[in-house]
Amino acid sequence: MIKKSNLIINVAIVFVIFFCLISCNKTKKEELKQYLTNDSMAMWDITMKNFVELKDTSYYHHYYKSYLIYSNFVCDKFAKSRDGNRFIEFLGPKPNLIGLCNQWEIKNDSTIILNCKDVFVVKIINRDTLYLFDTLGIKKHEMYRDKTPWNIDEESVLIKNKQVESGEYLDPYIY
Results as ranks from 00 to 15, higher is better:
96 N>K: 00
6 N>S: 14
62 H>N: 11
56 D>V: 02
137 G>P: 03
154 E>F: 07
34 Q>S: 15
99 G>I: 03
120 F>E: 01
37 T>Q: 12
100 L>Q: 05
95 P>N: 12
162 K>A: 14
144 Y>A: 01
129 T>K: 11
171 D>P: 08
82 R>L: 04
145 R>E: 00
134 D>V: 08
26 K>F: 13
85 N>Y: 07
152 I>N: 00
175 Y>Q: 05
133 F>A: 04
61 H>R: 06
71 S>V: 03
24 C>M: 13
91 L>E: 07
121 V>Y: 04
73 F>H: 11
31 E>D: 01
59 Y>R: 00
96 N>G: 05
37 T>G: 05
58 S>H: 13
129 T>A: 09
103 Q>H: 12
88 I>E: 01
29 K>M: 09
3 K>P: 03
58 S>Y: 11
33 K>T: 03
96 N>F: 03
163 Q>E: 05
20 C>P: 05
116 C>E: 04
173 Y>H: 07
56 D>Y: 14
103 Q>P: 02
113 I>M: 13
51 F>T: 05
120 F>L: 02
151 N>I: 05
18 F>D: 02
117 K>S: 12
51 F>C: 06
71 S>P: 00
158 L>N: 11
151 N>T: 04
20 C>T: 07
56 D>I: 03
59 Y>V: 00
154 E>D: 12
64 Y>I: 06
142 E>V: 15
57 T>W: 10
61 H>Q: 06
18 F>W: 11
151 N>R: 02
69 I>L: 01
71 S>M: 03
60 Y>W: 11
120 F>P: 00
165 E>K: 15
53 E>L: 10
134 D>Y: 09
79 A>S: 06
162 K>S: 13
85 N>H: 09
6 N>W: 15
27 T>C: 02
6 N>R: 10
32 L>C: 09
173 Y>V: 08
31 E>H: 02
6 N>Q: 07
110 S>N: 12
53 E>T: 12
2 I>W: 13
107 K>F: 07
23 S>G: 07
35 Y>N: 00
85 N>S: 10
45 D>I: 00
8 I>V: 15
20 C>Q: 07
169 Y>I: 08
54 L>Y: 07
73 F>P: 05
12 A>Y: 10
90 F>R: 00
173 Y>N: 12
55 K>H: 06
51 F>M: 07
58 S>M: 09
89 E>C: 08
38 N>K: 03
56 D>F: 13
8 I>M: 11
24 C>Y: 14
84 G>I: 03
124 I>M: 07
4 K>M: 08
156 S>P: 04
55 K>D: 14
105 E>K: 15
151 N>C: 11
148 T>P: 02
49 K>P: 02
57 T>K: 08
98 I>A: 02
41 M>W: 01
159 I>Y: 01
65 K>V: 06
163 Q>G: 05
40 S>A: 15
5 S>A: 13
7 L>V: 10
119 V>N: 06
149 P>V: 08
122 V>A: 04
165 E>G: 05
16 V>M: 11
125 I>S: 05
